[in-house]
Computed example of a mutant assay.
Amino acid sequence: MEKGKVVVLEERVPKLKQRRKQKANRRLTIYIAFFFILILCIIYFQSPLSNIKHIEVKGNKHIPAKQLIEFSGLTSRTSFWKVKAEQVERHISAHPEVEKVHLEKQFPNTVVIHVKERRRIAYIYDKQTFFPLLENGRILVKNAPKTAPSDAPILVNWKEGEDIQEIAGQLAKLPSYILSAISEIHHTPSDHDRYHITVYMNDGFEVSANVQNFAKKMVLYPSIVKQLNPNVKGVIHLEVSNYFKAYESETKGDDNEKGER
Rank of each mutant, 00 (worst) to 15 (best):
N213Q: 08
H187D: 15
L238V: 04
D151P: 01
V211W: 03
A181V: 00
M201R: 01
I197R: 11
V225W: 02
E248N: 14
L220N: 08
P230M: 06
A181D: 14
D163K: 14
Q165N: 09
Y200H: 12
E184S: 05
V219N: 07
Q227G: 14
A209H: 00
N210T: 11
K217H: 11
I182E: 00
T198W: 09
D151F: 02
H237E: 14
P149R: 06
I236D: 03
E250Q: 12
V156R: 09
Y177G: 06
Y243N: 08
S208V: 02
F244L: 06
A168I: 00
T251M: 15
H186L: 07
N229G: 05
K216M: 12
Y195T: 15
D151N: 10
E184K: 11
K216H: 14
P149D: 04
W158H: 06
G169P: 04
L171C: 08
K216P: 01
K245P: 00
V225K: 11
Y221M: 03
V225C: 07
L238K: 03
A209R: 00
K233Q: 13
M201L: 12
L220I: 01
E206R: 07
V211T: 14
I185A: 03
S249R: 11
P175Y: 05
I185E: 05
K216V: 10
Q227M: 15
H237Y: 10
E206F: 02
